[in-house]
Simulated assay, not measured.
Amino acid sequence: MTSALLAAVAVAVAVAIQLASGSGFGLLAAPLLLLVEPDAVPVPLLLVTVPVMLVAAWQDRSGLAGGFELGRVVATAVPAAVLTAAVAPQVLAPATVLALGVLEVVVAGAALTGWRCADVPVVAPAAGLASGALAALVATPGLPVLVVYRNPAPAAYRANLAVYYLVITVASISFIQGLRGIGPDALAATARLLPGVVAGWPLGAWLAGLVPGRQLRPAGLTLAALAGVALILKAAASCDRGR
């Protein structure tokens, strides 16, 4: 199986998980793509995130009836994404990949075991800073938001997260385009990922009706932990090749 086909399969699975659980697209797709097609992270993955989140927001649009609930997170996430895009290296060093992987495993694991961050005003902006930086680095803004955001209504949970991811992604792409442009290689890699979006859409729409609302957040955190393990393995493999 070629790397392009593996990348499309990874995206299809990530799309299905996103539409079903409300999160997981970047958390799952980025580590898998770093393993099979590293050039697809972050810019091509950010580009395909836009149609995925548009579909996700439309699928659960009824959940936005009460309004958008992640404004305080967006307020700091957008500047953080812009700043990180300006200074982030084109190719992530193994040490950076390792640090990201450890962060995802530790934070997601703690949240799954019952840890709750304090409900104080500074938490949401802090989550936004971390989320925006991760969006520009590896197209995975989900983990900090999953830790702080809770909504028992499945449609509202999925819709708010989809809109949030869409806003942060568009901000990251816009600044990257303005700063250094998006070249033909990135556009070609994006095109190779699009069949995965098309394939994962109907599967995710079907799965969305099967996932119990109380399982949405644990499912997203579990994916974050697994994604962190994949990043750690990626960093370890890179270090072995460098010896």
Rank of each mutant, 00 (worst) to 15 (best):
Y157V: 02
G183I: 05
I176Q: 11
L179Q: 15
R192C: 07
P152T: 14
V197M: 10
T190F: 02
Y157D: 03
P144T: 06
L166V: 03
L193W: 02
L187F: 04
W201Q: 02
P144D: 11
Y149M: 12
R192E: 07
L166Y: 10
V147Y: 05
A156I: 10
P184N: 01
V198C: 15
V170Q: 15
G178Y: 04
Q177E: 02
R180Y: 00
L179Y: 15
L194K: 04
A162S: 14
L166Q: 09
S174Y: 10
Q177K: 13
S174W: 12
G181R: 00
I168Q: 09
V167S: 10
G183Y: 03
L146W: 08
A155F: 06
L179S: 14
V197I: 11
A199V: 13
I176M: 10
N151Y: 05
A188G: 10
A189Q: 09
A188E: 11
R180K: 02
A188P: 04
R158C: 08
A156H: 09
R158T: 04
L179M: 15
N160G: 13
P154M: 01
S174R: 11
A188L: 08
V145H: 13
A189T: 14
A199Q: 10
P144E: 04
V148K: 07
T190K: 08
D185A: 07
L161S: 07
R150G: 04
T169D: 11
N160I: 02
V170W: 13
P195D: 12
P144I: 08
Q177L: 05
V167L: 13
P144V: 06
A189L: 08
Y149F: 07
S172Q: 09
P154L: 02
G183S: 04
Y149K: 05
I168V: 11
A155P: 06
I182F: 01
V147Q: 05
R158A: 09
Y164G: 12
